[in-house]
């Protein structure tokens, strides 16, 4: 089971929307049994980033963890969402 973290600045608004989109997508792809979802705020997760296999964020993250984080903003607006899902899928299958 892969651990997927969705985070934003407050851990309530935009991460909630992205979480909803990811959930629907996982179900459509038949991947929902392979992934456990978590939701939080960036400030709380900076030091725990290695606890997760996949991290999606809608906000700026410190440069120290930048490489491990997928930009989730396209999932909000829908523009470029396919590419984000492709990245997530690659990580799930990795």
């Amino acid at each position: 089971m892969k651990k997927l973290m969705v985070m934003c600045g407050s851990g309530v608004a935009t991460s909630t929307v992205v979480m909803g989109k990811v959930k629907t997508w996982l179900a459509d792809e038949g991947l929902d049994s392979k992934v456990k979802l978590y939701q939080s705020k960036v400030a709380e997760e900076v030091n725990h980033i290695d606890d997760y296999d996949i991290v999606v964020s809608t906000t700026i993250v410190p440069s120290s963890i930048k490489d491990k984080v997928i930009n989730g903003v396209p999932l909000l607006t829908g523009m470029g969402a396919d590419q984000v899902f492709a990245e997530i899928k690659k990580e799930i299958e990795a």
Partner: peptide, 10 residues
């Protein structure tokens, strides 16, 4: 300031 919320739409 810390977490901007602007979105450029289609």
């Amino acid at each position: 300031k810390n977490y901007p919320t602007g979105l450029a739409l289609n």
